[in-house]
Nucleic acid binder design. Sequence first.
DNA 1: ATGGTCGTTGCACGA
Length: 262
Amino acid sequence: MLRLATWNVNSLKARLPRVEEWIEQMQPDVLCLQETKLADGAFPALTFQAMGYECAHHGQGQWNGVAILSRCGLADVRAGWDDGGEADLDARLLWATCGDLRVACAYVPNGRALDDDHYAYKLRWLERLRTALDDHEDPSALVAVCGDFNIAPDDRDVHDPAAFVGATHVSEAERAALTRLENWGLADVFRDHYDDGGLFSWWDYRRGDFHQGRGMRIDLVLTSASLTPKARTVLIDRNARKGKQPSDHAPVIVDLDLDLDR
DNA sequence: ATGGTCGTTGCACGA
């Protein structure tokens, strides 16, 4: 069994004690982190190495930053875009091969508001991710695209859809961009296991939203057709959102029926 | 009550 997880930690510097504790408890084999908010030189690689993980980090400091930790191999690392287009100033995308699994760690732009330039950047970014899949990846392989998508795939993934009319994360264009990614040959593996709404991965720090159940499911694991049926258990670890100094996101865990030997 | 909290950095802004 291979335990794959993804977690937006909202600053790895602020979150390192919680992340270390969580790794000890949950023992992921592959862990994708978003919003490390660290420069590459500040990434605590030795800490994770001491816990048995190889690491790749693509960071810029202050904002963004993505990492992949693996204790089942780490090869063919690629950071950002390789499409001949303009460089992305934001560190939001990292790829690695971990054993038999091709993994992407994505921190999709927030979008801010429908009329904001950042929203157009978000849609372009998602289209570029589809292009990266077309250009570099094999849809028949074992592929997992993990991360904070900043998109609630449907209204079950929002605590109050009426409150989000006209807002980012739920717009038709964002959801269509996600569908276009899925049309490459990926499935939202959480939805393969649960039909229920009200199961969220992010809650605003304000207003006691976590304890009031006001959240969204925006952290996703998209699995290729050969990988999807290998998922034995999918869960959002909302316990990680409790307690002192939590991230505003909870980790998503997928246990995959894959051999760890290579 | 048209805010509320965190993170960054540095007294503002992003999420």
